[in-house]
Amino acid sequence: MITSRRYDIILFGATGFTGRFVAEHLASLANAPIWAIAGRDFDKLDALRRDLGRPELPIVLAEANNEDQVRALAESTRTVLTTAGPFNRHGTELLAACARAGTDYADITGDPLWSRKMIDRWDGPAQATGARLLLSAGYDSIPSELGVRVLQQEALRRWGSTLKHIHGRVRVFDIEFSGGSFASARARQDMIDADPSLAALLTNPFALTPGFNGTDQPGIGDVRYDPTLDCWVRPFMMASINTKNVHRSNVLQGLPYGAHFQYDEMQVVGPGDEGKRQAIALNAAGVAVDNIPLPGEGPSRAFCERASFSLLLYGINDAGEMLKLGVTGDRDPGYGATSRMLAETGLLLLDKPELGQAGVGLPGAVLGDALVQRLEERGGILFRFED
């Protein structure tokens, strides 16, 4: 356990679209830790700290792919938070440096291909140094991962057993994309173009659980009718990473949901014939964007503050009794809510060095109930059981 370094937290990628939101959240804290902002451009970092009203905020200069610079960065802090994607281009050296230095780390990757590479290469070394390296500490995949955990804990409390199958249903998903999101998608496709065998990982629900293959999972790639909710649902763009992380979380926690647990995640469209028609049309249309933003660009602040998300999780036990949980956020999922999830994950890593196991992990599996409480108190994320 590291107790003394120059900084408590370094935020890498602070001048990017999401990084700026994380910096604002940290700067708003009454009792903030000793933190610094990091990146490659001093002028942009200096402008950011002045915009934050914190001209004295330390700056750490580092290129993402400069091994010496990121090593020095990792060795100077107890915790690293990074928003600097695409992670398969700009994230590997930093995560590796944290693994070697025993430095806690959290990111917002939604890329299962890069995640699997980091698990395979750095899980063992991180365990040896005591580093807790938490992937996907944003909308990918905290609401899904933590929501399933909360629902399963309640099922166990009420009925003495966990649910065999949980359905995730995205009810509200207000989203506009940043340039970084498109850059990450292009980078992932470049990985597949270079090695077509990687495509199989994208469709494998257990791609992030090396050595464990659970039971067959429900399909999430086609429009279908949900008889429990009496509505039509369609494939959800984040389901590929979220479902994988839910299964990895189950494995990291020692399979508390069982070895045959099933999880699917879809987006709600609506009931009846009109719901079916809309679901088919939306699924066929895909994601349409008139003008793709540049890296560093994204939706307006007004949009991020008025947008929201709502995820319903439900399961039915063997006796036919249903349990439902709503996970909601009061900012847009991609940036406003994600930035607070990442910031509070990092702060909790700092505050609770005794929680969880070292290695390449996930926020819910490592920080558990403490993260649920922290997000409800300071992250604008609510976990509420529904009738």
Score class of each variant (00 low, 15 high):
residue 91 G to R: 04
residue 141 S to I: 14
residue 85 G to V: 04
residue 90 H to N: 15
residue 101 A to C: 01
residue 82 T to E: 08
residue 181 S to N: 14
residue 115 S to K: 10
residue 171 R to C: 09
residue 154 E to Q: 13
residue 168 G to N: 10
residue 116 R to A: 03
residue 169 R to D: 09
residue 114 W to K: 10
residue 186 R to V: 12
residue 139 Y to I: 15
residue 108 I to Y: 08
residue 188 R to W: 00
residue 98 C to L: 02
residue 175 I to W: 03
residue 88 N to M: 15
residue 118 M to W: 03
residue 117 K to S: 11
residue 87 F to S: 08
residue 80 V to D: 00
residue 91 G to S: 04
residue 105 Y to G: 00
residue 89 R to E: 15
residue 92 T to K: 12
residue 145 E to F: 14
residue 194 A to H: 14
residue 98 C to W: 03
residue 193 D to F: 13
residue 96 A to T: 11
residue 120 D to K: 07
residue 159 W to R: 01
residue 129 T to K: 05
residue 106 A to Y: 07
residue 140 D to P: 07
residue 159 W to P: 00
residue 75 E to C: 00
residue 84 A to K: 12
residue 122 W to R: 01
residue 112 P to S: 11
residue 90 H to F: 15
residue 184 S to G: 13
residue 152 Q to E: 08
residue 104 D to Q: 02
residue 193 D to L: 15
residue 101 A to Y: 04
residue 184 S to N: 11
residue 125 P to F: 05
residue 142 I to F: 07
residue 118 M to G: 00
residue 113 L to K: 07
residue 121 R to A: 12
residue 167 H to P: 12
residue 124 G to F: 09
residue 86 P to F: 15
residue 127 Q to G: 10
residue 112 P to T: 12
residue 116 R to S: 01
residue 102 G to K: 02
residue 78 R to L: 12
residue 85 G to Q: 03
residue 148 V to F: 12
residue 119 I to R: 02
residue 132 R to C: 08
residue 137 A to F: 13
residue 158 R to V: 05
residue 102 G to N: 00
residue 173 F to M: 09
residue 181 S to G: 07
residue 82 T to Q: 06
residue 130 G to D: 05
